[in-house]
Amino acid sequence: MKKRKPITWLLLVLWAIMVLFPFYWMVLTSVKGYSAYNAEYTPQLFCANPTFENYIYAFTEVDLGRYLFNTVIFTMITTALMVVVSILAAYGFARLDFPGKNIVFTGFLALMMIPNELVVITNFQTITELNLRNTFLGLILPSVTSVFYIYLLKENFAQIPDSLYYAAKIDGSSDWKYLWKVMVPMCRPTVVTITILKVIECWNSYIWPSLITDDSKYYLVSNGIQQIRESGFGRANIPAMMAAVVIISIPLIILFLLNRHKIMSGVVRGGTKG
């Protein structure tokens, strides 16, 4: 058993290199000068004299700053709306009684099985007919609800003992107050988890933004970088494109490194990519 450990380590390090190498390559390429990069027929694994000109170029030549700003706005509003809507709905399911609750909840769970690809077509038509193409509203509205996050929160809310609720009732606290003063603070870890997962989802969303925006003023980073690659400087200036890629990737990597336990346990509890 003891003897085979070096092979274990070797294989683990090999996979770590497989994972990290593309990140190394994107940072490396982004600090190579334009002419230096184009002069090397065989790629160099190191860069003798790094330059930051590509980063300046990425912000001045295309509106990368605007794409980032759009993405931040889109992510913040979508996530905030999702959290509020989900908290209210989860509370309704977990705490309050109304006729037919079980039937409604079962039907609600069935909605989880609907694939996004099926509903995107009509949503595209709806948003187009409402003249909301190339607007934040058109980007945000269909991205708000997540059946799964409501379910996750509801499960957590349901774990809070009933006695707390009755105690609050006796003290004259309203349902609304009880929700925000007791329930939400007690379930903070779950709320934080779904917030972070939604932020990741929003930051990386590509399909919906690419369908609903064709005015570069409303591009998010995903279709922004696609635009750079196909008709911007990406066709010729690979180092500048890689600089843009680095800038787009950094915010989420920082978010991940700061919250890695929350993110990883949140994903175990029910995330899938996309």
Binding site: P22, W25, T29, E40, Y41, W203, N204, S222, I225, V267
Partner: peptide
């Protein structure tokens, strides 16, 4: 480290793979 690709933008990192695998007359 192994979890890192999960949080990265599929489009952006895909372009790094494109550069890694691409062959052009100059490179």
């Amino acid at each position: 480290i192994y979890f890192l690709p999960y949080v990265t933008n599929t489009l952006a990192v895909g372009m790094v793979f494109m550069v890694l695998f691409k062959q052009t007359p100059y490179s």
